[in-house]
Simulated assay, not measured.
Amino acid sequence: MLIELDPYGAEYTRNPYPIYRRLRDEMPVYHNEAMRFWALTRYDDVYAGLRDNETFVSGEGVTIEGAEKGMPYLLVKDPPQHSWHKGLAVKIFTRGRMAKLDAFIRARAIELLEELGDRDRYDWAEDFAAKLPMDVISELTDIPPEFRDEIHRWTNVFLLRGDDADPELIKESHRRRLDIFRGLIKERRRSPRDDVITLLMTAEISDDQGGTYRMSEDDIVYHYSELGNAGHETVARSLPNCLLALDEFPDERRKLRKDPGLIEGGADELLRYDNPAQYLGRTTSRDTTLHGVTIPAGERVLMVAGSAINDERRFDDPRRLDVQRPVDPRSIHFGAGIHKCLGIHLARTEIRVVLEELLSRFPKYEIDLSSVTRAASSNLRGVRSLTISPGGHA
């Protein structure tokens, strides 16, 4: 039977894991001629590929289409430019800023849960999972409240693919989001503050050769946009995935409820079980051979992390959720190598805090599986809607 990996198809959107298993077993180096990409699906291959930034480069784009090629996003920078751009971005994720965010995350999660807990039913995906991470990344990057819902809406449009996508609307969403961030930067030039926007505008960094760099105007706009978009979408997809997984494995949910000390490791296991970031695109800089198959230079290659972290060669019974599973020290849920996500600690913290507060306040919550809707999306996998009944306070 022919294996087809179509990341924008209905079967993949619904459940890609059976397809992944067949690819790992039968075709670990897969080629989709029609969509013009290759895919690696085994853990060791994906991990090695993500770390080999000389063979598998990011500068040609990280999606299937590669439309972001040439844009000044950090995720499409290759060395040596990547090094100093990342050096500037790292200045944002300081220990002090993260410590302040921890208290904000818990306070905002409690506030939202209490507000929504007064309803009989609400949409967990839109009313909670989209709002909390947007508020968190906005607290970090100083995005005013009046722009947050709009940024979220346009980001969702930008990520749509397949039958749900409108190419012209995707272009418009890209323009509208950049306009918002450009306006915020313009305002900050008039009134500098001790915040992330001002930091991006004024920070300097030196490379190994002693060169000093500052971001250009476009660099600042795109990096600010990148922080705002990536900083909320991954967690917004993760939180509904967590509830669906715990519904599928009620014994694991009971373990977390009974012993909250398991939640920190359990959050990592939930990310492994159904990670929102399913694949990361790269382009070969030279011919490379794996498992007897040669991928020519200049070809798009998907590093399918969603498959890799469910590889039987690495994990025992991977399609079983086990909140006591030892945490993978490599932890490639959010990439590996030079492009490993800078916000991984923040994402884990948000998921842990939400589970702690939800399970302690509303231990009898129920989800309505018939309410689940999905749409094909670039790189990320999650649900568009998921109805929850809080079930009353503990």
Rank of each mutant, 00 (worst) to 15 (best):
D311V: 12
S378H: 07
E115W: 03
I351S: 01
L116E: 02
P79T: 11
F56E: 11
I351G: 02
L380F: 08
R348L: 15
D208V: 14
D45Y: 05
A129W: 01
T283M: 10
I143R: 00
T373C: 03
E168T: 12
M1D: 07
P72C: 14
F37K: 06
E226R: 04
L74K: 02
E252T: 02
L159E: 06
T13I: 13
I197P: 01
K77Y: 04
F362K: 01
R325D: 07
R188P: 04
L270H: 01
I185S: 03
L199Q: 07
S83Q: 08
D247L: 04
R374E: 05
F93V: 04
L200W: 04
P390E: 03
P133Q: 07
G281D: 07
I92N: 04
G261R: 05
G59E: 14
F93A: 08
I185E: 02
A107W: 00
Y17I: 06
A376H: 06
R119S: 04
I344E: 06
L23C: 04
D118K: 15
A236Q: 02
A67V: 12
L321H: 02
S378C: 10
E111Q: 13
V354H: 01
P329H: 05
A308E: 02
I110W: 00
Y30S: 07
L50D: 04
D194P: 03
L358C: 04
G306V: 10
Y224A: 12
P167S: 09
N241Q: 05
D328A: 13
G87S: 05
T94P: 06
H232Q: 13
P18F: 13
L112W: 02
A129F: 01
L159Y: 14
L243D: 00
N310L: 14
L75R: 02
Y30A: 08
H333V: 13
S238W: 01
A230D: 04
A107L: 06
R177I: 15
L355P: 00
E299A: 15
R348N: 11
P7Q: 10
N156R: 12
P240K: 03
L369R: 14
I19Y: 04
N229W: 04
A376G: 08
I151A: 10
A34L: 14
L23F: 06
V90W: 00
G231Y: 03
R193W: 06
A165E: 13
D123I: 09
N275L: 09
K364I: 01
M35K: 15
R51N: 14
R106Q: 11
G281L: 05
R352P: 00
H85N: 08
T373W: 02
R36K: 15
R22W: 11
K340F: 09
D207Y: 12
F315D: 02
P318F: 13
E299K: 15
L101T: 13
F158Q: 12
R119E: 06
R313F: 03
H31N: 11
G117M: 13
A236Y: 00
S225R: 09
Y30Q: 09
I388L: 15
T283Q: 05
N310I: 07
H393L: 11
E11H: 04
L199H: 03
R106K: 14
E264S: 11
F104A: 09
Y222F: 15
Q209W: 12
T349Q: 09
D123A: 08
V354G: 01
L160Y: 11
R108L: 04
L239Y: 01
L346N: 02
P167M: 09
D45C: 05
A89T: 06
M201L: 15
I143T: 12
P28Y: 14
W124Q: 02
S206M: 08
Q324W: 03
